[in-house]
Nucleic acid binder design. Structure first.
Lengths: 164, 164
DNA sequence: TCGTTATTGAGACTGATTCTCAATAGAGAC
DNA sequence: GTCTCTATTGAGAATCAGTCTCAATAACGA
């Protein structure tokens, strides 16, 4: 079975802390490790709902658990909700987010990671994790919106008159 | 008067887009430019409320306006709410956030900024803005929590047993 | 001063996440 | 296998930040 190692990490983390291994936990683990990329809590909830009863609260609680034991990363890439992704140790990466279409692209930069560690230490911080999100406009959207935009582009302006 | 330049940028941005310069807008501008560091919408609302009637909606609407014209930066540094800070052009900076006490420390790294631009371009993105948040544990909290922590430290674990 | 229409205020609304608490069910002891 | 203890679950209520609605107000150009 795939993700055997991660699954053992998970189970042993739970047991070590006096927790119980429940079918709900395992199902959530499987779901998030079968997904590629970023997924929100509601999607996970609905995916699991396909074949078993589970409550939203359980999904949230156990996502927190997965985050705590380091197997899952939770980030706000869009505006409203958190996105979750499973972590492959040693493969730290960051994100480019298109502010028009919300597409997320991952990239790795050991140079940036190293600089971050350095900076944190210089300021007396013990760096635990970081979030680097670069938002901009991707190639696709850039060509599409060339004609339109003169302002903040993607979202409605706070000034009404610009709408008319 | 201080912030004269920024204020003119603001007024001309509003006018240029067919908007109106209202006392509420000016008051919000003054408030956020009189504050140092990061502040949330509710704090701004309450600060302004001290000496004039204003509605929450107006605060949010006009914060959006300030963000749109580039005078204010909005970021999620904590978990829940957005934090706002006024921007001094040419002084891009990033943040270190202590995950225990939520203290925010600013730092500047031209090297990281340059790398970010490079990466964005390499992936066909036109970079508009970025958020780099390094969260970790600051010196103060590190020494205080030395004895305690064995787990996720600062917040309640998703596993109940660890509470007892 | 007037008229047009952008802006405001109050409160309803939304959507994501967290909380509550009674019912359920792991898992160690026997 | 059965018992017991208590961690976990489910359903829905609660929270919280932020957004929307719409009638009343007030900028600002004529």
């Amino acid at each position: 079975m795939a993700n055997q190692v991660e699954r053992e990490i998970f189970e042993s983390y739970v047991r070590r802390n006096g927790g119980r291994v429940t079918p709900e936990r395992l199902r959530l683990f499987d779901e998030i490790f079968s997904q590629h990329g970023h997924i929100d809590a509601d999607r996970l909830y609905r995916a699991i709902r396909q074949d078993r009863k589970i409550s939203r609260a359980t999904v949230y609680r156990n996502l927190e658990l997965l985050v705590d034991c380091g197997l899952v990363r939770r980030q706000r890439l869009g505006q409203r909700r958190y996105l979750y992704e499973h972590v492959h140790p040693g493969q730290a990466h960051d994100h480019l987010v298109c502010r028009v279409c919300d597409r997320v692209v991952e990239f790795m930069s050991p140079a940036i990671s190293a600089l971050q560690r350095e900076i944190a230490r210089a300021h007396g911080f013990d760096p635990a994790e970081h979030t680097l999100k670069i938002s901009g406009i991707c190639v696709g959207c850039a060509s599409e919106t060339e004609v339109a935009a003169t302002g903040p582009s993607h979202r409605r302006s706070a000034l009404r008159s610009t709408l008319s």
